[in-house]
Design a protein around this nucleic acid. Structure first.
Lengths: 216, 216
DNA sequence: ACCTGAACACCGTTCAAGT
DNA sequence: ACCTGAACACCGTTCAAGT
């Protein structure tokens, strides 16, 4: 019932919404959300500085859309890594941790946008909330599988998941924020920090029983 | 050798720098740094909108000063709690975790300012970097004491500290950012989440040996 | 339906000038 | 030394108007 001709493009631009999103994504990747204006994005997209208001209520809505895409991408990466990981839930959790941290290092400004408080009224964007929750559920799935297979301890799934999430989340933010004194952040450090942290979380900080002391 | 009279106050205001800082602190606590302008701070402090430039190079410098105070305060809280805690390093780590999370919940906007990326050129503020590092050292001290007393496992101090720091940091940010789906954030939740997370970190996520199964 | 351009009420920052 | 006021180059957002 739609008119056959007249492809999606119309008056001036065609697919302005996606063009805006891609432009914004690139500018933010370069300089961070704090340093990017809506007028600038519009100009880079080749439209007047008010055109975006046809597609977004305001600047926050653009940020929310970008953050949502970030959450979906990060969750997808996690799922892929989990699926690819040989070994049990312990190894899978390690893979998630690495993926989370590597994502942050690869796209620091996007991670800041997702978690840094640039988006004030989170509740106004239900699909953003949902995408963020989906990320947590990826981790929850791994923990749950580990409990069912008996490799991870019993207890409230939410508690264990929150703990694992907090660890990888905090690690990624500390690294991306360059808040760790005295270290150079390169691929080697990221891999080591992620693996060691997840290992310590899984095995515990407490001194292991001596009967089976592993060399460290 | 200083002139005895003429108390610090002079021309118009006296102690404008501290007045600005206190005003900014309050406005940020109410609405978050993103929503506060320098002109507004100046007006609330009762001076013209350019007076701040006599004391700060720019807006970022004001933010940096506030964040630095936040780091010093949080580190101080941690030290106090550690000193007050009866029991070993395990209990002390738990106290640090709670303190960190409670600080974030009490001053969410300040935590966002300290860690949320509002301050772009971190390196320009060496005393801020130092204050942030001092916070990490508080945690390192606890971990080190635990290793020396034999209660915590051996291994690189930096690794164990980073892991513990990441956990409490991530937990605080997830809670403050209200990123945890399906929970109400009240004092009970905060206490439970902090204690349970630190406990899991210390004991590990792996299924405990059955010979001495603790009731959970 | 989609976009433009003028307009409004703001910003951060600079600078000559006042006391 | 410390502060003011005008000025500059920006913002985000609204709205009447164009096609």
């Amino acid at each position: 019932m739609k008119p056959p001709a007249a492809p999606t493009r119309n008056y001036h631009h065609g697919d302005l919404k996606n063009t805006l999103l891609a432009t914004a994504s690139q500018l933010i990747a370069e300089r961070g959300a704090e340093a990017v204006s809506l007028r600038e994005i519009s100009q880079a997209a080749g439209v007047s500085h008010t055109a975006a208001y046809r597609h977004y209520a305001d600047k926050q809505a653009v940020w929310a859309d970008l953050a949502e895409a970030g959450f979906r991408e990060l969750a997808e990466i996690n799922r892929t890594r989990v699926a690819k990981t040989k070994g049990g839930p312990v190894e899978q959790l390690g893979a998630c941790g690495r993926a989370y941290v590597e994502f942050g290092v690869r796209r620091p400004h996007l991670l800041q946008l997702m978690f840094g408080g640039s988006i004030v009224d989170w509740q106004s964007y239900p699909s953003l909330v949902q995408a963020s929750a989906a990320l947590a559920e990826t981790l929850a799935g791994v923990v749950k599988a580990g409990q069912e297979s008996g490799e991870l301890r019993a207890g409230e799934l939410g508690d264990l998941t929150l703990t694992a999430w907090s660890l990888v989340h905090g690690l990624a933010l500390l690294i991306v924020g360059r808040r760790i004194p005295g270290v150079t952040i390169d691929e080697g450090f990221v891999r080591h920090a992620a693996e060691r942290s997840v290992q310590l979380l899984i095995e515990g900080l407490r001194r292991p029983p001596t009967r089976r002391a592993k060399r460290n």
